[in-house]
């Protein structure tokens, strides 16, 4: 048993910050919220459309960054009829994480930090109301962490919710703390 008796609710515009030492089940909690793991007992209610940023980038190494992100953007369930086309969403997300100039570079040539930002761009491009971020600050430099905080704030200001599992400090104003272990 990793953890038990955990209960929380994230309102629109809200945030949850999952913290605790290594191996205590932060990633597992995020995976349960994403519907990838079944909890041994209990209930999870989530909007059907959510975006996950996990340790693996899940971007095809041989493809240009823009095309790799576009593949996922076409698979994203469209949240609203007014929402922009997949191409426009990817372009905007690349702009937001500062990777627009290297959209044509194959994913395998990206650095660790750039790969993390690319995974973040996939989350931004999804337009999902719920973001599930597993250690999003890993491998990011100081400026990129500030950018991550800005993106989360913008997402919440637009009524989106976010759950973040992290051992690095990330500014999440008014976040509900969930401390494991």
């Amino acid at each position: 048993m990793l953890f038990e008796h955990i209960s929380f609710e994230v309102p629109p515009g809200g945030a949850v910050s999952v913290s605790g030492p290594n191996g205590v089940g932060k990633s597992s909690l995020i995976r349960i919220a994403a519907g990838l793991l079944r909890p041994a007992d209990g209930e999870v209610t989530c909007p059907p459309h959510r975006a996950l940023m996990a340790e693996a980038a899940a971007l095809d190494a041989a493809r240009p960054l823009g095309a790799a992100l576009h593949f996922w953007a076409t698979l994203d369930p469209a949240p609203a009829p007014s929402s922009a086309s997949a191409t426009a969403r990817v372009a905007k997300a690349l702009e937001a994480v500062g990777l627009a100039p290297i959209a044509a570079v194959p994913v395998r040539l990206l650095s660790t930090g750039q790969r993390r930002r690319a995974a973040l761009a996939r989350v931004v491009a999804s337009d999902a109301p719920l973001w599930l971020l597993d250690e999003p600050a890993n491998g990011l430099d100081v400026a990129s962490v500030a950018m991550l905080e800005r993106l989360i704030a913008t997402h919440r200001a637009g009524g989106g919710a976010v759950a973040v599992a992290t051992h690095l400090p990330i500014a999440l104003p008014d976040a509900i703390p969930v401390v494991l272990g």
């Binding site: 994403a34 519907g35 990838l36 059907p48 459309h49 959510r50 975006a51 996950l52 996990a54 340790e55 693996a56 980038a57 899940a58 971007l59 996922w72 698979l75 994203d76 369930p77 996939r122």
Partner: peptide, 14 residues
């Protein structure tokens, strides 16, 4: 499975 592609498909309801 290793690169997380299957996870991302599942999250998208596929």
């Amino acid at each position: 499975a290793e690169s997380g592609v299957l996870d991302q498909l599942a999250v998208r309801g596929i």
